[in-house]
Amino acid sequence: MIKTQHLTKRYEALTAVDDLSFEVNPGEVLGFLGPNGAGKTTTMRMLAGFITPSSGTASICGHDVIEDPLGAKAALGYLPEGAPVYGEMTVGGFLDFIADLRGLSGPLRRERLAHVIERLQLKGVLAQTIDTLSKGFRRRVGLAQAIVHDPPVLILDEPTDGLDPNQKHEVRALINDMARDKIIVISTHILEEVEAVCTRAIIIARGRIVADAAPAALVARSRYHNAVSMKLGQATQLAAARAALAAVPGVESVEVSEREARLTALPRAGAPILAAITELAGARGFDLQDLHQESGRLDEVFRSITA
């Protein structure tokens, strides 16, 4: 379990992290969201024991990061932002070094090293120096380093930043794989990622928690939650359709995109309006190309909370 109590980091002129208290339990994948400079990295660095909090504290699996830093670090796998590594080392040499520091030995060591090399597909580059690797491979080496000792807690700072879509998919699959029995905290500003892997999201802005909920619940806060979007075959019907939609009970407002010939009806307080609109579209004989209900837009929620 990760537990923070009034975690605070002040620099001379600015409070980077301001009185953060939260708990994360096994099985949870916590997404740490926020605009750049919101305090995500500072918080993660305090959890990982790289920065000392100005006040408050945090504990990893019962090990206080200030009182028992080595215990906390032993329970933790950490991928720093940008995945720094020793560039002049070979991949194999680097993983050996980390396994040494993690105190792995004997058959367990061989098994763990084989596992991470297999899982992150590093077999082909073991003898290469890390400096010669592509960004995707370097990130994988960073991830291998974080999980080689099979820690109960994983903290990953922007694990998919700068990766191509295939690599992002692989990293997310890896996180989902490990999610069952671990505590995982990832920071990201890619919102789709939160919906793809996280069971819970904390949004922070200016060092404070501004939202803490399941991604679905956050999405439900969107103005677009349960909104109905339709695309018409003929742009000429737009004006009439708009008037008709606005008259449906429960519809708060209607947005029109003329270029796409698309209408979006926003419900009042998330009320279900799909049935009424479907019926209306049939009765009026609209030339429908597409009709669907939106679950909400996380980016819109994110902006409205953090702006």
Binding site: R45, A48, G49, F50, L70, K73, A74, L76, Y78, P80, E81, G82, P84, V85, Y86, G87, I98, L101, R102, G103, Q145
Partner: peptide
Amino acid sequence: KSGSIELLMTQPVR
């Protein structure tokens, strides 16, 4: 400069 100090200091090492 390279940031590897963050990697080293977050291993269980004094």
